[in-house]
Write a protein that binds this DNA or RNA. Sequence first.
DNA 1: ACGTGCAATAAAAACGTTTTTATTTTCCTT
DNA 2: AAGGAAAATAAAAACGTTTTTATTGCACGT
Lengths: 356, 356
Amino acid sequence: MAKAKSVSDRTLPTIKTLAAHTGYSIGTISKALRGSPVVTNATREEILAAARELGYQANARGMALRTGKTYQAAVLMPITSAAGYEWDGVEYTQILSGISQALDGGDYQLSVYGYRSFDDACAVARRIADQRLADGLIFSGVLANDPRIAMLVEADFPFVSLGRCRQQLVYAHVDVDNEWAAYAATARLIAGGHQRIALINAEPRLSYALDRIDGFNRAFREAGNEPSLDLVIGGDLTARFGRDTTLKLFKQPSPPTALVCVNEATTLGVLSALSSLGLRVGENVDVIAYDDINVSAYFSPPITTFYQPIELLGRRLGEFLLLRMVDEGAAKLAEVFRPELIGRQPDNLGGRLGRS
Amino acid sequence: MAKAKSVSDRTLPTIKTLAAHTGYSIGTISKALRGSPVVTNATREEILAAARELGYQANARGMALRTGKTYQAAVLMPITSAAGYEWDGVEYTQILSGISQALDGGDYQLSVYGYRSFDDACAVARRIADQRLADGLIFSGVLANDPRIAMLVEADFPFVSLGRCRQQLVYAHVDVDNEWAAYAATARLIAGGHQRIALINAEPRLSYALDRIDGFNRAFREAGNEPSLDLVIGGDLTARFGRDTTLKLFKQPSPPTALVCVNEATTLGVLSALSSLGLRVGENVDVIAYDDINVSAYFSPPITTFYQPIELLGRRLGEFLLLRMVDEGAAKLAEVFRPELIGRQPDNLGGRLGRS
DNA sequence: ACGTGCAATAAAAACGTTTTTATTTTCCTT
DNA sequence: AAGGAAAATAAAAACGTTTTTATTGCACGT
């Protein structure tokens, strides 16, 4: 039985193969392939033809070693522990998908680094920058005071963050306008007659959780009311958190009459809790949420949400990183998306707002 | 204003730095660091101490170039197009998380390759193997007759697939026992008195979709009934597909009385449709589903599911790949997980089965 | 005392590139 | 027709490793 020719047997054509094949020196081959103007057009054509013929592909490791570049774009990804896994972090599929789209066809390869804790994330980021494991870095889960941003800015290492910190630093980033998002949702509920509004929020050390609280407060302030700050709860964004929190809130002497939920997983938990409490959305209580994987339309009842174009955020992250890696200034690379309201049955706040 | 020292200014310690620092030659340094037995213990200690002191870390590119290894583990990931994004592929977060856990601490770096179509996936797989862009490959979405498996086996390139094809080939894989899973769900419904059972399935070119149909058929056969094959529908596994399909099924003259749903996204769509049709799960109709991101407990009503340990599958994929890359035979690297039933209200099939 | 064999280390080559420096060729100027 | 600048290409060096080959020093047996 003849053993199949293993992929490791064959040897790939290198620049040397091309040199032998065409009679030019390896230096000339290299220059021709890189499009250097010092080689004659005729020579270049000849070499390119040979490259095509032999199926030559530049060896990334050789290039990397010589140039010092890695041709890797690193992404930090939170790793969930197996135990109580629930929906958590699912939007990462979209983010990676977007980044991958941006990188597609270019020279950069997407490299994923998992981390288990924030400290871990910092350590990994530092290692990537210090050892130049990649030419650039993308990460999310930005804290109000994020040491990664400070460190990377200081080191002048190319990166793009999904989210903004609260320090006065210039860096490339993409974000959702969380302040406005929370403001708009809260204002809509206030206009609908609500005073006791709960905010099911992310952990308050996260920068965007603070932004949401700011928007929440602004809505009350503009309406001339005191914000119901006792109803602002932060936690991990799982369905369980949504349910547990809701059950707790409605045990209070003065429960909320409406809830703003920061993602769909918590929303699902909130709806589950409301249903088990015998409360009906749109009648006894109102809920406004934010999309991440866009299934709110299928909840019972369907929930009015603000749509966040997560995949687009991902694509922009990738695009910005590419620019940043070719030394585009960080100042220009910033984009903040405003979520878009998608009204759904039976959110009849619009009606209550006096429109009909 | 003094410019911050950029990360690209400093030069990292190399094996040469260590050589200069200790007085040994670079060859000896290399051997000492790799733990070769030819160097004296005293020398090794001395060199390791110097390495620690200078914070030396081996340069992956240098190693890669010399050894021909890439120290990259590639993963093929489906890329969803931005347009109608819905939940699709969210389980990839868990899979990547599991793989990342397996790779953690080792020498291999996780490299993600996006693909937009099956042909694209094949092309990317071939490129990875041909050009040795990575030392190993993981992919999912296996077809009954999957050209990637045939090609990689033929080339003897290390890989692990999530899913099994229907060709007689020896290759490392991890899978869910889909035949059994569908069998168990269908049998449970048949025992509960159902005859007209729908199977909301993946596209039938996918190997596991066929496995599910097999199990579905076996359950009917063992009960001595004709399977309701007209109620087996394949499609993309979105919530929209679940809803549209359900609405269609219940317009038929002879609609199903129970449904088996292949993942949670479709389940959500199915529930949404049932609700809009005025049907109540556990009363007019029964539903059994399969977990992917484990939120079925929060559906209204909560749905009985078979739990699939997706993150564990991911971890096993990574573990198997590591073994495969050090030349462990593929034959030993196979594991098929059986999902576990998680009964939830208001699935009262248990009651109807005559237990009480 | 003197090769022998072995242990320890040094030196050199190689992996596939890019880049710098050197050489050859061409062609223009006088 | 000779000299020299410019153009084209070749040669060599370098990136950081690992591995193969060469060298050194030393203990040993005779």
